[in-house]
Simulated assay, not measured.
Amino acid sequence: MPPINLAIVGVGKIARDQHLPSIERNADFTLVAAASRNGTVDGIPNFTTMKAMFEAVPTIDAVSLCMPPQFRYDAAYEAILAGKHVFLEKPPGATLSEVESLASLANEKGVSLFASWHSRYAPGVEAAKSFLGSNTIQSVHIVWKEDVRHWHPNQDWIWQAGGLGVFDPGINALSILTHIMPNPVFIRSATLEFPENRQAPIAADLKMTSAIGTPVHAEFDWRQTGKQTWDIIAETSAGQMILIDGGSKLTIGGKAVSLPEEAEYPELYRRFADLVKNGKSDVDIAPLRHVADAFMMGERAFVEPFHD
C-alpha cells in the first residue's frame, strides 16, 4: 500500500510538539497539506480552511484534527463526507452525541475514524493492565494534579463551556483507568470546583466503584505548582501497584518494572495507519462518558476567580 496522504488541521502546540514529529518518522504517512486559522507548517501547502485545502489538494486521504473539541465535530463531519479517514485528538468531541454521530457516518461512508487516547500508549499501561487482570484489586486512587498556567497558557477555549477545564488532563487518567480495569467503573458522586469567572472546573473529586464494588477515588486539580503529579495507585492482593508520571513508570510491590521507551504519539499513528489499511475504526467513548457523568452527577462548588 502506498503512503497515506495526510493533512493536519489545527496547527497549535500539540500539533507541533507531538503530531508533526510522529508523522515525519512514520513511513506510512506523507504530510501533504495543513489547514489552520493561525499556524502553518513549513514545506507544504497551507490553508485557512479545510474546504479550501480539500479543493486545492484532492489527493488527501486522511486528516488529523487537532483543534479544540468544541470545533471538532464540524471539521470531522466535513472530512468524512469528503471521503477522508479521520484521526481525532482527545477528547474526540465536545459531546457524546457528536462522537456517536461521527462513528455512524464514518461507517456509512466506509472510512476509518480513530478516537485517539494517547495516555493509553504510555510505556507502563499494558503491563499494569496485565497485572491488574491477574490479581484481586482492593482499591484504586488516582492523583492527577498539574499547573494549568504551564501547560495551557492563555488558552481561553479550555475554560469555556465544552472546553472540559481540569478534565482536559483528567480524561487522560480516565482513559488509562478504563483500559486497565478488568471490570467497568461508574461514578457514584463528584464535586467540581469552578472558578467564579470561568465556565469549566479547575478541580474535581470523583468517587467511583467498579461493577464488582471496587472503590476508585480520583483527584484532579489544575492548581499544583512545582512537581507535577500523574499517578494511579492500586492496592491489590499481590501488593501495591503504582503507575507514575502518566504511565511512563511502573512499580509493583515497590520494585520498578522494566518498560519500553515512551512513544505515545508514534504508537497512535501506527494504530491509525493500521486502521486505514484494514478499513476499520476505533471509537471508544468510555473516558468521555465518565466526564459527562461527572458533570451530570457532580455537585458544584465555586472558588476564587482564576486569572492567567
Rank of each mutant, 00 (worst) to 15 (best):
N5I: 05
G12I: 04
K13P: 00
A15S: 15
D17Y: 11
D17P: 05
I23N: 02
D28G: 01
D28Y: 02
F29V: 08
A35G: 12
K51C: 01
M53I: 13
I60S: 09
V63Q: 01
P69C: 13
A75W: 12
E78S: 14
A82D: 05
A94I: 11
T95M: 12
L96P: 04
S97Q: 14
E100Y: 15
E108H: 15
S119T: 11
R120N: 00
P123L: 02
P123T: 07
N135I: 07
N135T: 15
I137R: 06
V140I: 15
A161V: 09
A161F: 03
G165K: 12
A173C: 10
I180M: 04
P184L: 05
V185A: 04
L192S: 04
F194P: 00
N197G: 01
N197L: 03
A204D: 05
M208N: 00
P215A: 02
F220E: 13
W222E: 09
Q224C: 02
Q228D: 07
I233H: 07
T236S: 04
G239V: 11
L243G: 11
D245R: 15
A263Q: 09
Y265Q: 06
L268Q: 12
L268T: 04
R270P: 00
D274G: 07
V276E: 04
D282N: 03
I285Q: 12
A292N: 13
A294V: 08
G298T: 11
E304V: 10
P305W: 11
